Simulated assay, not measured.
Amino acid sequence: MSHKLTFSDFVNFILQLEGVKNGHQMFFAQAEAFGLAEEFKANWKKSVGMLSGGERKKLYFFTICCLTRDWYLFDEPFAGIDEDGKAMMTKQVHRLLEQNKGIITSHEAAPLEPFPQMKQHELAKEKG
Rank of each mutant, 00 (worst) to 15 (best):
H3T: 03
S8R: 12
S8Q: 12
S8F: 01
V11C: 06
N12G: 00
I14W: 07
E18I: 00
G19V: 02
N22H: 04
N22S: 07
G23K: 03
H24F: 02
H24L: 05
H24Q: 12
H24V: 07
Q25R: 08
Q25K: 10
M26L: 10
M26E: 08
F28W: 04
F28K: 01
A29R: 13
E32W: 00
E32T: 11
F34T: 01
E38P: 00
E39H: 07
F40P: 08
F40C: 07
A42G: 11
N43P: 00
N43V: 00
W44K: 09
K46P: 08
S47E: 13
V48H: 02
G49L: 08
G49R: 02
M50Q: 13
L51S: 04
G54V: 02
G54T: 05
R56L: 04
Y60W: 07
F62H: 10
F62W: 11
C65E: 06
T68E: 15
R69D: 04
R69L: 10
D70H: 14
Y72C: 06
L73Y: 15
L73A: 14
L73K: 01
F74N: 02
F74E: 03
F74I: 01
F74H: 01
F74P: 01
D75P: 12
E76T: 02
P77C: 06
P77R: 05
A79R: 10
E83S: 09
E83M: 08
E83W: 01
E83R: 09
D84L: 13
K86T: 05
K86H: 01
A87T: 07
A87W: 05
M88C: 14
M89D: 06
T90S: 14
K91N: 04
Q92G: 07
V93Q: 09
H94R: 15
H94Y: 09
L96D: 12
L96P: 09
E98N: 14
E98F: 03
N100M: 03
N100K: 06
G102I: 13
I103M: 15
E108N: 06
A109T: 08
P111Y: 02
L112T: 03
E113N: 07
P114I: 01
P116D: 14
M118A: 04
K119Q: 12
Q120A: 11
E122V: 07
L123C: 05
A124L: 14
K125M: 15
E126Y: 14
E126T: 05
E126S: 13
K127V: 09
G128S: 09
G128D: 14
